[in-house]
């Protein structure tokens, strides 16, 4: 084991290597004549663009001198209306406007496309994780069941799902099952991700159950516990501890895999990134930011699971 000074030296070396790597990225981007425009990014995270105030009918507008009051008189008839909820007027006194024209804007802080995409990614991942855990538990129990039919079905499901690419599964769910059952793109995404992740969770659950020593089952049965009670009170609590680390890894995979749902009409973080790139022409900055946002999600999850593991480890 290295002593503490040499350990710090090694950490220092790692940081230095990372710095060299970053610098070469920067130099490489100079070579291809790339101009970094980081200042364009914040508006896609947080937008100030607020609600529009639109003309309810054709007519003339009246704007006060100080621009604080805005009202309208109908072109035909004598209808009038005035507006109060706005921060910027876009028209001038006496303008003729038509129904639906934007007269004023209300500035408001709100989430930009990237944050909205992040929220969708979070939502779809969280929902899929819940279903995947339930599905995986049921199928995992099926894998170790005494009933051959349950074992066969569970094995079939796991093999089929693990043997085909997620992207293909998403297409099948979206275009085939989604059309038959009239699923929304969001529902199709949740279904595809849950079914995919569920197969991996099932294998984790099976391994966790099989890792509990046989003596535990024998002891429980010798005390007269039923098969269900043995599972519920003796095996699963012990398996839970063992499956926590691999489940954490699988959940992180789920968050990353969710980027594939962007092939459907779903604006998740990845799709939002693509849209922002096409309007900013700053692909490097956008993708770096998107990557960072994924890292944020997975990082928070890692920390949460590590906490949970510590709590479990506390008991004996």
């Amino acid at each position: 084991m290295p002593n503490s000074t040499s350990r710090w030296l090694w950490h220092g070396l790692a940081v230095a290597l990372l710095a060299v790597f970053g610098a070469s990225l920067y130099i490489a981007s100079k070579r291809i004549d790339y101009t970094w425009r980081w200042e364009r990014i914040p508006q896609y995270l947080i937008s100030t663009e607020g609600e529009d105030q639109k003309a309810p009918f054709d007519g003339f507008v009246a704007v006060s001198e100080d621009g604080k009051q805005l009202s309208m008189t109908a072109l035909r008839g004598s209808e009038t209306t005035s507006f109060t909820d706005f921060s910027r007027v876009l028209v001038s006194n006496g303008d003729l406007v038509f129904e639906g024209d934007v007269l004023a804007k209300k500035d408001q802080l709100g989430p930009g496309p990237l944050l909205i995409g992040l929220w969708l990614t979070l939502k779809i991942s969280a929902l899929s994780l819940v279903f995947a855990l339930m599905l995986g538990l049921v199928v995992g129990l099926g894998r170790v069941s005494k009933n051959p039919a349950a074992r066969d079905l569970a094995a079939f499901y796991v093999e089929v799902i693990r043997g085909t690419p997620l992207l293909v599964q998403i297409f099948i769910v979206y275009f085939f099952i989604g059309t038959v059952l009239q699923l929304s793109a969001f529902a199709a995404g949740v279904v595809a991700l849950s079914v995919f992740t569920g197969a991996y969770v099932a294998e984790i659950v099976r391994a966790g159950i099989e890792a509990v020593p046989k003596g535990q089952v024998e002891a429980a049965q010798s005390l007269g516990l039923s098969g269900f009670q043995t599972m519920r009170h003796v095996i699963l609590p012990q398996a839970t501890r063992r499956v926590l680390p691999p489940l954490a890894g699988q959940s992180i995979n789920l968050i990353k895999d969710s980027s594939l749902v962007s092939v459907m009409a779903l604006t998740d973080l990845t799709k939002a990134g693509r849209e922002v790139v096409s309007s900013t022409f700053s692909p490097f900055e956008v993708w770096f930011v998107v990557a960072l946002m994924y890292l944020l999600l997975t990082g928070v999850l890692s920390i949460a699971v590590r906490r949970l593991e510590k709590r479990f480890a506390a008991q004996g």
């Binding site: 535990q216 024998e218 002891a219 010798s222 005390l223 009170h233 609590p237 004996g316």
Partner: peptide
């Protein structure tokens, strides 16, 4: 199940339930 309620068994490897306290081990069944 009803037989095993009448027959206690003690194993070479103890086979206590590691996730339960001593008291919980005794009161589970």
């Amino acid at each position: 199940r009803s037989l095993r309620q009448r027959v206690g068994m003690v194993f070479q490897q103890f086979n206590l339930f590691p996730h339960l306290t001593v008291l919980e081990n005794l009161s589970l069944a």
